[in-house]
Amino acid sequence: MDAQIMEAATAYEIKPRQAVALETRRVAKTYPSDLGLIRAVDDVSFEVRQGEFVALVGPSGSGKTTMLAMLAALLSPSSGQLLLDGMDLAQMSDIERVRLRREKIGFTFQANNLVPYLTALENVELMLRLNGRLDKAGRVRSQELLARLGLGERMANLPSQMSGGQQQRVAIARALIHNPSLVLADEPTASLDTERAYQVVETFANLIHENNRAGIMVTHDLRMVTYTDRVLQMRDGKLVKQYVTREEIEGLAGGRLEH
C-alpha cells in the first residue's frame, strides 16, 4: 500500500513520509434486526496520512455513512480499532468522545450545518468557543479564513442570508479553524449545483493539503473525487477497492466505477 501512496504522491505532490493520522483496524459495526445480525461495516482497515484527502464512495447502504459516524466518534464500532493520533476511539467513554470531537475533529454535514441564529463569523468562532480558545488571534484567524474562502463580505450574515455554497464554505471554515487532526465531510456537495460543488470540494482539498490535515469526504457524486488523493470504495459494508493513481481516480471521476 505504501508503494501505491508513493505513486499517488508523485502524481499529486503529497509528501510521502507524512505520519499516519488515522488508522482503522478490522473495524466492524453490526446491528441486530429481525433478519439477524446486520453487518453495516464489515472488517474495514485503512489509514489516512496527514495532508491526505480521501474520498469514501459507494452506493447507498454500502456502510459509508456508518463508517463516517464511527470515524467521527459518534458511534462506537462493534469490534476493531479506530486510532486517531494513536488514541483508540473504540475505547473512549462518552465524555471523552465529546471532547475528542471538539478538539480533534472538524466536521461538515450534508444539511443543517450551521447554527441558524449565528452569523458566518460566529459560526466559525463557535468551534473556538467550544474549545475555550476564542481570543483576539482566533477571531482574526476566523476572519482571515472566511476572507480566504471568499466570504469577506458575508461575515455578519446569518446562514439564511447566504446561498447553499456560501453556507458550505462557512462550514468548511468551521471544520478547520481549530486545527483538528481529522476533517470529515458528509456529502458536502449534496445541495449544490455542479459548478459550486466543484468549487467547494476544490477549496476543501486545498485547505487540507495546506494545513496538513487528514481529510475524508463521503460522497455519492463520483465527479468530486477528482480533487482527492485516494478513493476508498465500499460495498455491503466492506472496503472493496482503492483507487490510488491519478489515472484510476480520474477514471472514476469520469464515471467508471469498477465493480
Binding site: 465524555i95 465529546v98 470531537r101 471538539r102 466536521f107 454535514f109 447554527v115 467550544l130
Partner: peptide, 10 residues
C-alpha cells in the same frame, strides 16, 4: 444534533 456532533457537551 450538529451542535453535539461538533462537540458541544450536554
Amino acid at each position: 444534533g450538529v451542535l453535539k456532533a461538533i462537540g458541544a457537551p450536554n
